[in-house]
Simulated scan of single mutants.
Amino acid sequence: MNVSRELVKFPEWPQFDGAERAALDRALEQGQWWRMGGGEVVAFEREFADYHGAGHALAVTNGTHALELALQVLGVGPGTEVIVPAFTFISSSQAAQRLGAVAVPVDIDPGTLCIDPGAAERAVTGKTAAIMPVHMAGHVADMDALDKLSADSGVPIVQDAAHAHGARWQGRRVGEFGSVAAFSFQNGKLMTAGEGGAVTFPDQERYEEAFLRHSCGRPASDRGYFHQTSGSNFRMNEFSAAVLRAQLARLDGQIDTRERRAPLLTGLLNDIDGVVAQSRDERCDRDPHYMMMFRLPGITEERRNRLVDELIERGLPAFAAFRAIYRCPGFWETGAPALSVDELAARCPVTEAVYTDTVWLHHRTLLGTEEQMHRIAEIVADVVGSL
């Protein structure tokens, strides 16, 4: 195949315009730059909760803190276990481990790359305090099976929705499942203020506890330093919230574009010999597509990494997949299960393959034109064919 080596010019990320500038001016001029005195964080929390169908939202410093706070209000701590997918960014496990809990990795579905509900069920013990599905690349995990597992076992769900702003499963938004969910606004995410996070809650009680714990145990109305719980300072500032309000306002339109482009690019990638794109369960009826993920089954990790380097040289914002969390040294520092790497690998055969053979493209590629989707596929085919 004779493919031009001219670099592809995709839309930039992050995206911003006068709306963010006006929001920053608004936050600046109000004269109060932290959440206890200003109005931007409170307004953003209300808008974000409404958008996701949640009763309440709490804005925090980042997505990792969002997960940690979500787990803490559900009682996760020393002597407990949290079930997490073995294939995820390591914050999913570290949030539990930082609280003194044991993170228990389980395998994933080979198509959607989300947690395997059957594997999660087999991992439940009397110590299990939470099950954490990750909505991988924006695809909602099988919430039908997971909600049933939660109801049958009595173990609550904590959704890691860092990739899933605006996602839906059978018409239900992330905040409508009756479980706590954690989001990230890190620089590469679907909406961003550089850093930031949020936790959505279905009920007032857990929201109020989370508020205390994210603000050093101090109620919003406190003037006498009566710290009612232990906690830390996870408060979001007014400038970040102002930017996120503008980002949220354009999110739906961006998802609409990615939903139009993703089926085209998925088909084109699947037409390439040796390439298998992340599949989609039809019950996930709105996928915001944080990543365009595809596998090259049988490829070695070394060759996959060379392929990623070549794609980057050709202008594609390409990345190697997350490592299996149990193959990261940080996983073993604290809160690891009493199993060896080899034992965990034997329990997670899909993860073992996926972390070595998977590539992902940043979601800004899906904001490009139809012509660019064909160009992406041409480049991938050319690079795969040359390895």
Score class of each variant (00 low, 15 high):
V3F: 08
S4G: 13
S4E: 14
E12Q: 13
P14A: 10
F16T: 11
E20Y: 02
A27D: 05
Q30Y: 07
W33Q: 02
E40S: 13
A49N: 02
G55R: 01
L58F: 10
V60L: 05
T61K: 10
T61F: 06
N62L: 05
L67S: 06
L69T: 06
A70C: 02
A70I: 02
V73P: 00
I90S: 13
Q97E: 10
P105M: 08
D107W: 11
A119K: 04
A120N: 09
A130Q: 12
A130W: 14
I131W: 08
M143E: 05
D160L: 03
R168W: 07
G175F: 02
E176R: 02
Q186I: 00
K189C: 07
Q204L: 11
C216V: 09
S232I: 06
S232Y: 03
N237E: 08
E238I: 01
V243S: 08
V243H: 05
Q254H: 14
P263A: 12
I272C: 08
G274C: 05
R280Q: 13
E282N: 08
Y290H: 14
M291S: 09
F294E: 01
E301D: 14
R303M: 11
R304K: 14
N305A: 14
N305S: 14
P317L: 12
R323Y: 13
I325G: 07
G330E: 15
A336Q: 10
A338H: 10
D342N: 13
A345E: 15
W360C: 01
H362N: 12
R364M: 08
T369H: 07
V384F: 12
S386L: 05
L387F: 13
